Amino acid sequence: MRQGILDGMQDMTLMEQLPYWAGFFVVAGIVSAVEILFLYWNALRGVARISRIAGIPLQDSQYARLLVSGMSRVALELPSPRHRIYGIDPYAQMGRWKLALTSILYRMKVGVSSFILRVLMRRVFGRMALRGLLPLVTGPLYAIWNAIITWRIMRKAKVQALGPYTIEFLMQRLEADLDRLGSTARDVILHGMGELIMRSQDAHPNHVYLLARLLDAFEVSDRELAIDWPGHRRKLDTLDEAETQWVLEIMTIATVLSGKWQGRPRRFLQEVHEACGATLDEERLQARRKEMLEGRQPT
């Protein structure tokens, strides 16, 4: 057995290799479990620190639980809850197979990816002449991999912590100009928000909070929305200039609130602009995103 390990196991039978690999997988599993626990602990600590630094603006509101729950899910790399939001199914436009696959990948993201990386590195470098340097090579690689995971978590936490500030700045301006929005414009905005949530295929807490604030501002009594974007899209050309500008402003800010402003959300925003007879201003979109990430009031 010792000679086989020193010279490589290519000449050993599967049964002869079995004790070695069984021991290796047990040790790798334990190390990965400890590593995962540390990553989660470190992520929760980092998210809590971000929350304190940001001074979450919802601490005394009815929506505080929404934000706290969202921040915790970010730290633990958990997906958004699989339930309707004000009658909206965020995953209505996602195939069942994709929804199931996404759920599985979320659970595998941290732990299994780290475990697989460890096994692959052992298999690759274990067959090389320099396999004695394996610990020196894989150690930094594991550290880099874990740093990437932690960076992604902190990035998401930052977006989620600063999003409510952007929403509050937006709502202050909107409420001061609310009399200029007719019932049609308000319906278009609400259905546009619902469509954006479905296009994003995620119930991001920032989107949920913005939708809730809009429902409050518009004094909507029925909180179960039956989204019909195609029908309301046709009403965009009936809005006056001020109403159109508010639709574009709200949809633009909403697009960057989840941090995922490319792909389907961006195509939806472009669709809204085209329906309004306007051109999507990429620089303005980038500016809105930068303002949110810096915690500055939209200009």
Results as ranks from 00 to 15, higher is better:
Lys156Val: 08
Val74Thr: 03
Val159Ser: 00
Arg123Lys: 05
Ser72Val: 12
Arg123Ser: 04
Met128Lys: 14
Arg131Asp: 07
Arg155Ile: 07
Phe169Trp: 01
Tyr86Cys: 04
Pro79Lys: 09
Leu76Glu: 06
Asp179Thr: 12
Gly126Met: 06
Met128Glu: 03
Tyr91Glu: 06
Thr138Gly: 05
Lys156Glu: 11
Glu195Val: 15
Arg122Thr: 09
Phe169Gln: 00
Arg152Tyr: 11
Phe169Gly: 01
Pro140Lys: 10
Ala92Trp: 11
Lys98Asn: 01
Pro81Glu: 00
Ala157Pro: 14
Ala185Leu: 14
Arg122Ala: 07
Leu141Lys: 15
Glu168Gly: 06
Val119Gly: 03
Leu130Ile: 12
Thr138Val: 15
Asn146Leu: 15
Tyr86Ala: 11
Met108Ile: 08
Ala147Phe: 01
Ser69Gln: 06
Thr150Phe: 11
Arg96His: 00
Trp145Met: 05
Met108Thr: 12
Arg127Trp: 09
Leu170Ser: 00
Ala161Asn: 02
Tyr165Phe: 05
Ile149Trp: 06
Gly87Asn: 11
Phe115Gln: 11
Leu134Ser: 00
Ser103Thr: 10
Ala185Pro: 04
Ile149Gln: 12
His191Arg: 02
Ile88Asp: 01
Val124Glu: 10
Ser72His: 14
Ala92Cys: 03
Gln172Ala: 05
Gly139Val: 08
Ser72Lys: 15
Lys156Cys: 12
Arg123Leu: 03
Met121Ser: 09
Arg173Ser: 07
Arg127Asp: 02
Gly182Arg: 04
Ile197Arg: 06
Pro90Leu: 13
Leu174Thr: 14
Ala143Cys: 10
Val124Tyr: 02
Ile144Val: 11
Leu134Asn: 02
Val68Asp: 05
Arg123Cys: 07
Glu168Ala: 14
Leu101Arg: 08
Arg118His: 09
Pro81Ala: 01
Ala147Leu: 08
Phe125Thr: 06
Gly163Arg: 00
Gly87Gln: 13
Ile189Trp: 00
Thr184Ile: 05
Thr166His: 04
Leu196Gly: 01
Ser114Val: 13
Pro135Glu: 03
Val112Asn: 12
Lys158Pro: 03
Met171Arg: 10
Leu120Phe: 09
Glu195Asp: 01
Arg131His: 07
Arg122Asp: 15
Arg107Gln: 15
Trp97Gly: 10
Leu178Cys: 07
Leu76Tyr: 03
Leu117Ala: 14
Pro79Trp: 07
His83Val: 03
Pro90Tyr: 06
Gln160Glu: 04
Ser72Pro: 10
Gly70Cys: 04
Gly139Asn: 15
Ile189Gln: 02
Trp151Gln: 14
Phe169Val: 08
Ser183Lys: 13
Lys158Gly: 08
Arg96Leu: 13
Tyr142Leu: 13
Thr102Gln: 15
Leu141Val: 15
Asp179His: 14
Tyr91Gly: 03
Met94Ala: 05
Thr138Asp: 07
Ala176Lys: 12
Arg152Val: 01
Gly182Asn: 14
Gly95Met: 02
Leu99Pro: 05
Gly139His: 00
Glu168Val: 09
Ile148Cys: 12
Met171Ala: 08
Trp151Lys: 07
Lys109Leu: 13
Ala100Asn: 02
Pro81Phe: 01
Tyr142Glu: 11
Thr102His: 15
Arg152Ala: 12
Ala100His: 08
Ile197Tyr: 04
Leu162Met: 11
Tyr106Thr: 05
Asp187Pro: 07
Leu120Glu: 08
Ala147Arg: 04
Asp179Glu: 14
Leu134Gly: 02
Ser80Ala: 07
Gly87Met: 10
